[in-house]
Amino acid sequence: MSALPRAHDLGIIGCHVCRQVSLETKKAHARCPRCGAPLHRRKRDSLTRTWALLIAALLLYLPANIFPIMRTQSLFSKDDNTILSGVIELWRAGSPDLAIIVFTASIVVPVLKFLVMGFLLISVQRSSQWGARQRARLFRLVEVIGYWSMLDVFVVALLSALVHFQVLSRVEPLPGVIFFGMVVVLTMLSAMSFDPRLIWDNRESDD
């Protein structure tokens, strides 16, 4: 056990919206005395919500990667790109640096989010004692990098608006990009539903 006091043990609660510290009450719908936002000792149904959103994201992740996200059409050719083939094309076009950036944002980040969130959920559920500090750091990493996956969605939106040269050359969005956008939103919601304080709760001697 560490010597540092935790809010719940002191009977106080910190507001996550304005950081005001107030006394914990027994009321079911306690509100912060300063800003009026609802106070929770821990986020409500954190594990269930995080799991549900994560699984939903995982299901949509399959069509997001299998279906093409963008069609490039010219007079004589039609070229459908998935997320992965878009990265490869960028690499071949002579921009390996950008290809690596896109690969990181569109493939590494989502996969990392699934793995990390799954790992955090399982370790909390099993009251794991292992490396709380490392797990806390993993969670913060997921929070920071999460929204960069929107990169490909914005690229498709921009190219579809720009490349509009009648029949000569056209870029159109394909359904994959819709699934991918939803995956990003769902994984972000999933990470927001997770309460990192749970990582530390289970380490304490029984309540």
């Binding site: 540092l4 006091p5 935790r6 809010a7 719940h8 002191l10 106080i12 609660i13 910190g14 996550h16 950081r19 510290v21 709380a132 806390a136 969670f139 913060r140 990192p196 304080r197 990582i199 530390w200 709760d201």
Partner: peptide, 10 residues
């Protein structure tokens, strides 16, 4: 007082 948002330490 300030409470750590990530682990509830005061």
């Amino acid at each position: 007082l300030i409470v750590c948002e990530h682990c509830d330490t005061v």
